[in-house]
Amino acid sequence: MLKVHDLRAGYGKSEVLRGISFEVNRGEVVTIVGVNGAGKSTTLKTLCGVVRAQSGRITFDGADISNRPANEIVERGLTMIPEGRQLFPFLTVKDNLLMGAYKKAARSTVAKRYEEVLEMFPRVRERLAQHAGSLSGGEQQMVAIARGMMASPKLLIFDEPSLGLSPLLVEMMFEIIEKITAQGITVLIVEQNVFHTLKLADRGYVLENGEISLSGTGQELLDSDHVRRAYLGM
C-alpha cells in the first residue's frame, strides 16, 4: 500500500534521511522505532508532504506522492495524527472532529462517520461543546485520534502517541490503538516506547542515523540483541 524507496530528506543543508526504504502492506501494523534525532519525525513529515524529499520515491496505492502538497496526500487517504496532539485549541471538540472530515472524500459521509467515531470514544462525546484547549492531556490525545479517524483514512499514521503522557495514560493509548488496528485499518506508528509498540506491530523497522539498520517482525526485533541493548536497556 505504501512504498518508500531510497528516500532522502533534510532541513537546509543537513541531511536527516539518508536513503531509507520501507513498505506498509494493507491491513498491517508497522512501526518505525529509533532514537531521538534518528529521523523518525522527518520520515513522517516527508510522507505527509510537510517536508520536501530531496530524492527517492514514495508511492501510495500505486501513485507517486513524493513532494505532492499535503492536502492532496490527505485526499488520497493518508492521515497523520501528529506528535503532541496539535488540536485547534479554541475550536470546540465537535468542530475539531468536523475539521478531521475536511477532505472532500469524507464530507459526504460525515454524519455517519461522526456517530461511529463517537461510539468508539465515549469520553469525547461528553466533551463535544468544550474548547479542545480546555481538555486534559489524555482527553486531548483521544480527540486527536478521533479527529484522525474522521477522515476515514486508508492509512493512519501515529507520531509518538505516548509522548508526554503519564504511564497510566500510555497504557490506555495503546489499548485504543489496538482497537483501531482490530478494525482492519492499516497503521504506521512511530514511537520511542519500544516495548509497547513492537508488541503491537506486525513488522518493524529500526531507524538509526537516518538509515534503516534493522527490520523484521515485532517479535524478531524484540528478541534481537541489538534492540534489547540499545532500546530496552537490557
Binding site: 510537510v50 492536502n71 488540536l87 479554541f90 475539521m99 475536511y102
Partner: peptide, 23 residues
C-alpha cells in the same frame, strides 16, 4: 461551512490544519 471552519482552524494551528487536508 467547511471553508469557514477551515478559516478558524488555520488561524489557530496552521500545521494541524494542513494535516486535515486544508490547503
Amino acid at each position: 461551512t467547511y471553508v469557514g471552519r477551515a478559516f478558524r482552524a488555520v488561524s489557530q494551528h496552521r500545521y494541524a490544519a494542513s494535516l486535515m487536508g486544508v490547503n
